[in-house]
Nucleic acid binder design. Structure first.
Lengths: 333, 333
DNA sequence: TTGTAAGCGTTATCAG
DNA sequence: CTGATAACGCTTACAA
């Protein structure tokens, strides 16, 4: 606090007996500097503990190296998995992640994006919520790149990564029917996000095509407790379903637990269950849940590749495939 | 890309017919500016979509507003929970979180800290790994504040937040003994971090004091699979334990699952189990695990409070209490 | 290859 | 309360 903080390129230059531009060049990949000068600079820098000031560098270059990750419910298994892999890949690409936590309140995502602009983030990756169009326009106008993961289709934004939720859901129907199930149910949250609704519609439509009816129940937000409540509701139906597709693994876990404890149902003998996301817990032996794997690796790879490739300015839409991970919660297989 | 990016205070000033200092003052809390000037500036700023450049502001103020969160295994339930609450509280305090993912490799934390220095983070919060002392010195010398959460005690760093792991572990012994258990076991990972070891030692010592012996097994890193392996090893012991304290809830989940499926043991009738962290899954009915709650809320509160209070320069050590959350995995209660 | 000098967008100081 | 001016630490023409 008392003395001046941090050591500057100036001080390194003085100690090394060179100009400050020489120091700058030493730390700029691809700049022309003689081996001898570089050596002396590095020596002085190490001795002084010099680190380039990225605030100043970003100011000059108009490129901060910051990528803003906008996400809600970080502590949720799927979200944290995606977050983890994204930050890793960003780091490998020489970027740094700025994490902004949003909530369900109005304007939460907008505030996050403004924060991203203030820090002159090179890009923002939106993993939850939907920004106001005026704000996304502001970002784009300012040259900030935007990636939308599993967001609404009609949102503007250069890169949009989505899954084939609809088609995936129809594959579950096939699996259920093949297992001999006839009374199908869909357990959804009331969040009503596009990907959740796509799963619901895909499931219902595919079932109808086979002449089967589907009981749909929606409750709460996508979590374990909601799954418990949904089980209560669906399993007390007069014509109890023998197969349930849960919009999310977290829902499925809650569903299975109450199905077993409270209704003494054996899975998959009396009830087949499928989920979506392939969170870690889905593989736990207590659940052994057949589910669709979010291609988190591919999502992160695509996002980062697009960010690195400065030539890709145009809008782009990527649809990734969700693999069906077959486990023990559906008969047969 | 073509035109100049972002709008500057200069442009806002011109449009509002004031000087750029007036604009700056308008966006500086507590600066003296007349209501009329403020109004005109705000109007122009809104029209132009102006956002203060925090890179430049940080450069001037020597205060970036960035707090660097250094953490490994982000996707783990306890870690992501802590991360989530920390980012939220930081945001409420007007800070922004920079997330740096570390791995187990040497120097990983050091690289993260250097990144923090480069972005002139106001502080770094270390949640995993241990930095080299030379690097922490560098941080401190540079005026960067350091918070260590559940890290080694003899590490330097202004604020160190720890739990009473040792004492907590002894409370489990009491609970086990009260439940009539005599053959105690401790299931640990081989990570050997201080908090993990403190739990082990606390457990073993408390048991010895009561004349009970403890079988200790260590395997892998702190995860579900490790818990499965530990169950294999401990439950095939000739003198099978009737109570197991798992160093972590994640271990406990794996342990319970194999104990039940593979050894057909009923919990808590034939085997009592306790864990640590109180992750969300511990409350799921499949586990219903008695465990210690990581006071994540308190940890985050203390960390952020200390960061906000600029007067607190001295070293500080905070020891927080881990509450025992009583559930069904131990008899009695 | 090197040094000099200008400029990035702010904020702080200091007259008015 | 306001406006000019000088930093902040860096990069990058430009000239040597």
């Amino acid at each position: 606090m008392t003395a001046r903080l941090y050591v500057s390129a100036q001080e390194v230059a003085e100690r090394a007996g060179v100009s400050r531009s020489a120091v700058s060049r030493t730390f700029t990949p691809g700049a022309s500097v003689s081996p001898e000068t570089r050596r002396r600079v590095m020596e002085a820098a190490d001795a002084l503990g010099y680190q380039v000031n990225h605030l100043a560098r970003g100011l000059m270059r108009n490129e901060s190296g910051i990528v803003c990750l906008i996400v809600s419910e970080v502590a949720t298994p799927y979200r944290s998995a995606l977050l983890s892999i994204l930050t890793q890949k960003l780091q490998n690409a020489g970027k740094v992640a700025m994490l902004v936590n949003t909530d369900r309140s109005d304007g939460s995502v907008d505030r996050a994006l403004k924060q991203a602009i203030r820090y002159r983030a090179d890009a923002s990756i939106i993993m939850s919520g939907l920004p106001d169009k005026s704000i996304t326009q502001l970002c784009l106008k300012n040259g900030q790149r935007l990636v939308l993961i599993n967001r609404d289709d009609d949102q503007p934004g250069p890169l949009r990564i989505n899954l084939d939720d609809h088609e995936a859901a129809s594959r579950v129907v096939t699996a259920f029917v093949r297992a001999g199930c006839r009374r199908l149910a869909f357990a959804n949250s009331q969040a009503g996000t596009p990907s959740l609704m796509a799963r619901e519609h895909g499931f219902v439509h595919a079932a109808r095509r086979l002449g089967l009816d589907v009981v749909v129940e929606r409750y709460g937000w996508t979590g374990y407790e909601a799954g418990q409540v949904l089980a209560q509701r669906l399993l007390t139906h007069q014509d109890r379903p023998d197969a349930v597709f849960c919009a999310t693994d977290l829902l499925a876990c809650g569903f299975m637990d109450t199905a077993r404890r409270q209704f003494s149902l054996s899975i998959p003998d009396q009830l087949c269950v499928a989920g979506f996301d392939d969170i870690e817990q889905a593989a736990w032996t207590s659940y052994d849940l057949t589910t669709f794997a979010q291609p988190v690796e591919a999502i992160a790879t695509e996002a980062v590749r697009w960010l690195e490739d400065r030539s890709l300015h145009e809008e782009r839409r990527i649809q990734l495939h969700a693999d069906l991970v077959w486990r023990g919660s559906i008969r047969g297989g």
